[in-house]
Amino acid sequence: MKTSIRNVYLLPYVVWIGIFVVAPILLIVYYSFFDIEGKWTLSNYKMFFTPIYLKMAASSVWYALLVTFFSLLIAYPAAYALTKTKHKQLWLLFLILPTWVNLLLKVYAFLGIFGTYGLANAILAAVGIGPKQILFTDFSFVFVSVYIFIPFMLLPIFNALEELNPSLVDAARDLGASAWTTFRRVVFPLTLDGVKAGCQAVFIPSLSLFMITRLIAGNRVITLGTAIEEHFLVTQNWGMGSTIAVFLIIAMAAVVAVTGNRKRG
């Protein structure tokens, strides 16, 4: 009796997994072996290993690394400062509130801010540097991406810091460690799980964001995501798109393996 009731829960869930998790991945792999005319082929894979695609993949990884690095650089101190404030839950809510504003609207806002006569150039002019072409550069891509991802990096780090037993810090100080040593030897290692979770939450999507590249970076930055979108929706070469997707999935699996599949799940 017990088992039958359990199966009642299990069945729809497993069906969902089958249709929307397992089948799509298999389909992607399956399609990667077909060319645009629907013939079985390995040419997509051969194509991927040509310099054009390898370069694109490398630059996509490079930009994702940059975005992850800067997000971490900004979010960690912010999370740390946040834990020291009085009404931290309220402040946290305010800090992650912007994530609930539609992503595209925020990206769109930067069209104005980074525009030739926008806020950024006004500031640059005011400090005497003079107007620059910001929009449609790789700088604008990294900046906007970091902006988008800060809350996603901040949240897991904040949680890790909150879970940290404060007496550990006291203990380290008591044992003679300086503030910096305490941070380096105690706080940071113990919040590493949060950092990893944050990096995972930032790195993978930044490999594949195509709307930011389309709207902000013009065609200066082409990520794996942009290429997939291009092949699926513009050139209709699903085979090649799937092949790139396969590599993106592999990259994703690698990142998850390195950063550890979030435990406690």
Partner: peptide, 20 residues
């Protein structure tokens, strides 16, 4: 398996669902 769709980039989800 549950977490696959959470860590998957949107493009992959979109593309694979399109095929599906």
């Amino acid at each position: 398996l549950n977490n696959v769709l959470i860590v998957s980039p949107d493009v992959i989800i979109g593309a694979s669902f399109l095929i599906l």
